[in-house]
Design a protein around this nucleic acid. Structure first.
Lengths: 113, 113
DNA sequence: AAAATACTGAAGTTTATACTTGACTATCTA
DNA sequence: TAGATAGTCAAGTATAAACTTCAGTATTTT
């Protein structure tokens, strides 16, 4: 598993691009949670939360398991590993480029200055 | 600049979630390019490429500068820095969690096995 | 100056996303 | 077993995303 497909990366970044999903991940990073517990602070329906969970599961950021009537959700390493791999592969190439740019990084910001 | 806003992170992940935009970044990581050069291999209109560029600029992944009639585009460090900062902040928390999970990581994959 | 080049801008189309409602199915609990 | 609890399923809606067309506007180039 050295190469992740474009679609994997698409799904991953897309999953992370939503603030509700990132909030869910943050909450799960404390401890595993039921769907309801996850939904409680979010102000959206259970259904919506389950939909977010599906997206998070599909890209390997979360794993869920149903025990009785409760679905327990927890952080899964796979998605994060894909992300780190992508960063690692691109950091090198980008830093080469950014390195050559040199003092351009110290260039005044048109946006903020 | 220690804290990035949710909206910044949203924009960044959203920008990176599109394969066309990642292809543009890959091409720009070789060398700065004009809009047309960037558009050439993509099979979409110039207009669409410019729209992608705006998104990439807004999240600090690309910087562009118009010289004469040509707009020159290059990788910008800011967006990548925001991404690395997000990872750094979350890796710790997640690894704590993943650490406690221990052998769960070695658990058989329902998906692939 | 005329033609070509390199974009730019406004507007529209199509598809996807985030979310809802409402009806349903299991599984606990009293 | 009746009721509450936890989640599931199938539609549907509204907004946003990705893309297009087509008509411009500056800059070269000839």
């Amino acid at each position: 598993m050295r190469q992740d497909s474009q679609a994997d990366i698409d799904r991953l970044f897309h999953a992370l691009g939503d603030p509700t999903r990132r909030a869910m991940l943050d909450k799960l990073s404390e401890r595993p949670q039921s769907v309801s517990a996850l939904a409680a602070p979010l102000g959206i329906t259970l259904t919506a939360v389950v939909q977010h969970l599906q997206i998070l599961e599909e890209c390997g950021l979360v794993r869920t398991e149903k025990v009785g009537r409760v679905r327990s959700c927890r952080i899964h390493s796979q998605g994060f590993a894909v992300l780190e791999r992508w960063i690692k592969e691109h950091r090198t190439v980008w830093e080469q480029r950014l390195d050559r740019l040199g003092d351009l990084l110290a260039e005044p910001d048109e946006e903020s200055g």
